[in-house]
Amino acid sequence: MKLLILTATVATLATGAALNAQAYYGGGRGGGGGRGSGPSGELGAGNPGEAFPRPPRPVWNPADTTRDPTPGAHQPGGAQSSGGSATALPGRAPGHVPGAPTPQPGTPGLVPAGAPMDFTRAAATLRQIEIDWVFPVTPKAAQPLAWERAIAALAGTDRRPLLVRRHGHEVEAAGDRRIADLLDQEEMRVMSRFFRCVDLADTSRHPEHPFSGLFHPERPPLCFVSDANSEVAVGFSGYETAADVYRALYETLARAYEGDADRVVRGLRRGIEDFDRLLPREEELVRLVDDAVAEGGPDSPAAKKQRQRLDEIRKELAALRARQTALSDSLKLRAAD
C-alpha cells in the first residue's frame, strides 16, 4: 500500500495531472486525458477549507480512534494525497485546515474537556439514513459499453446524479476502507438520497465486463460521482480529503438540482437529532407496553399509561417525518436538457 501511495504522489509530481480524483468527461475512459478540466481545476487552489463552505462536523464515536473529527485530517502512513487537486500543495500536511486545532483520537474535537460524551447515533436512527444502494443487473453485451451507455445503464430512468462505488480488490483494501468510512459519515448518508447510489463489484473493472468502460484500466477509482447525463464526473481513490470529496458532491448537486443543497442537507441533519431522541424512545415504549401487558393485562393502568406515551411519541415522529420529507422535496431536479 505504501508503494501505491508513494507512486500516486510521485506520479502527481511528475505529470501534474490529477491521479487520485480523476475526472472522466464522456467518450471513453478519461483519466488525465479527458475533454475538459471541470471541477478539478479548482480543487486544491488555496486552502480547500476556505474555497468551499466547510460542511458541519460529522458525528463520530470518540471510542473509534480510526476516525478523526476533522474531515480528511487522518491520513495513514503520512500519505501525501492532495485530495484530487490538479496541483499538489507543497509544505502542507494534507487535509489540515489552518486554524483548526489538531484533534486527538478519542477527544471530542472542539468540545471543551470534561466527561466524555457519546456521539454514537442510535441504531434506529442510522437505519433512517441508510444509503439506498442499487445493484444493477449486468447487461449482456458483446463488448464493454461506452462511457455514456454504461452511465445510462446504471441510471435507468432515474434522473438523479450517480454516486457509484466499486468494491476494491485486495490491493486496494486501504482505499476501500477509507471510501467505506467516508460513505458511513452522517452527512454522506443524508445527502445520498439525492443521488442514485450504485454498488458495483470489483469484477466490473475487468476488461471483458460490460461496465469496464467506466473505469480507467490502470487507475480505476473506487468511487465516482457523475451527472445523470454522463457529461461531468469526478472519481475518488480514497486518498482525497473529505472536504474535496464533499465539494465535488455539492457541486454535482448544484448542477442537478434547483435549490440550496447545503441548506437542505443541514436541515435534514438537524432532523436526525430529533430521530435520535424519538426512535429509541419509541422502541423502549413498545417494550414497556408489552411488559405491562404481560404483567397486568392489556387494560391495566400501567399498560394504558405506556400506550398513551407511545401514541404521543408516534405523533411526534409522524410530524418529524413529514417535515423531513417536505425539506427533502424542496430540492427539485432541474429539467432535463
Binding site: 508503494l3 504522489t9 510521485v10 506520479a11 480488490h169 490491493v171 475487468h206 490502470e218
Partner: peptide, 25 residues
C-alpha cells in the same frame, strides 16, 4: 512530501505499473 532520485522514481513507477498490470485477480 517524498523527494526521490530520478532513477528510483522510474523504478517505483515501473514497479507499480507493472504490478498493477499483473495484478492477479
Amino acid at each position: 512530501m517524498f523527494h526521490l532520485p530520478a532513477r528510483s522514481l522510474t523504478v517505483l513507477l515501473c514497479a507499480t505499473l507493472g504490478s498493477t498490470a499483473q495484478e492477479p485477480s
